[in-house]
């Protein structure tokens, strides 16, 4: 008995380490005072200031634009790539190539892309960030969809082809519906990765209006402000809701599959 309790001590240590900074951020976001360090009573004023901050609002919009654009590209390309690699290729080298953007350090991707856009004389902007984010997102989508593919039943596809349907028709009518949950999961992953991505966006955005992570980065470079605490609290709330909703959705999906 004593041993099993000891077993869970590290777990609590880890949770305290992970959540202490977050709790502090949330508590300080309600601070009435100006200081980032001393709590001087409850107030919602930082949330008001946050709502009024145009840079943060624009940053959020830009981030969403980039995330939607890159996710769209990455989902289409990543899904095709996953099917192509699983069904039409046995090359280990191509598998590795498809995973490379997810494995390489972001900094290496960032400078490579910066050099490339320079050579082709592309004026940097949101679209260059979209192209760049789509690169690593595609790798994640392809990986997620492939996991789903490896568990999928190929007999239907074979039957479809035996009956004379072409690859494209088979893909649209048979493979795609089977893969849908994997594609949605991959797209969600791509979307969240893009929302939080800083390094590559920082290098490839040029003079376009910054994305939210870049706005936050420059705000922090100019000092600590409780406004950022309020932003952190809101982002945290959104992730909580998203995670719980995601859990519910998977459970409903599983229930449906069990019934069907």
């Amino acid at each position: 008995m004593r041993r099993s309790k000891l077993l869970f001590v590290p777990l609590w240590v880890t949770y305290v380490f992970l959540y202490l900074p977050i709790v502090v951020l949330v508590v300080m976001s309600f601070n009435a005072g100006e200081s980032a360090y001393t709590y001087e009573g409850f107030s919602l004023k930082w949330y008001g200031e946050l709502a009024a901050d145009e840079r943060i609002r624009n940053g959020l919009i830009n981030t969403l634009v980039v995330a939607v654009g890159s996710t769209a590209i990455a989902t289409v390309l990543g899904t095709l790539l996953a099917v192509g690699l699983a069904r039409h290729s046995r090359s280990k080298a191509l598998d590795a190539l498809a995973l490379m953007p997810a494995v390489l350090p972001d900094l290496v991707l960032a400078i490579g892309l910066l050099l490339f856009y320079g050579v082709i004389a592309l004026t940097l902007g949101h679209y260059s960030v979209i192209l760049s984010h789509a690169l690593f997102s595609m790798a994640f989508v392809a990986a997620v969809v492939r996991t789903r593919l490896s568990g999928a039943d190929t007999s239907l596809e074979e039957a479809s082809r035996d009956l004379g349907a072409g690859h494209v028709v088979t893909f649209m009518k048979i493979t795609l519906p089977q893969l849908a949950p994997g594609i949605v999961a991959g797209a969600l992953l791509a979307f969240t990765l893009s929302l939080d991505e800083f390094v590559i966006a920082f290098f490839t955005i040029g003079n376009a209006e910054p994305t939210l992570p870049i706005v936050i980065y420059s705000m922090i470079r100019f000092g600590v402000t409780p406004k950022i605490n309020a932003l952190a609290a809101i982002l945290l709330l959104v992730s909580f809701v998203a995670v719980i909703a995601g859990q519910r959705l998977t459970r409903i999906g599983e229930a449906q599959r069990a019934e069907g």
Partner: peptide, 11 residues
């Protein structure tokens, strides 16, 4: 970095 990174910085 912005002004020298690519041919036309747009600025």
């Amino acid at each position: 970095a912005k002004l020298t990174a690519s041919g036309d910085s747009g600025i």
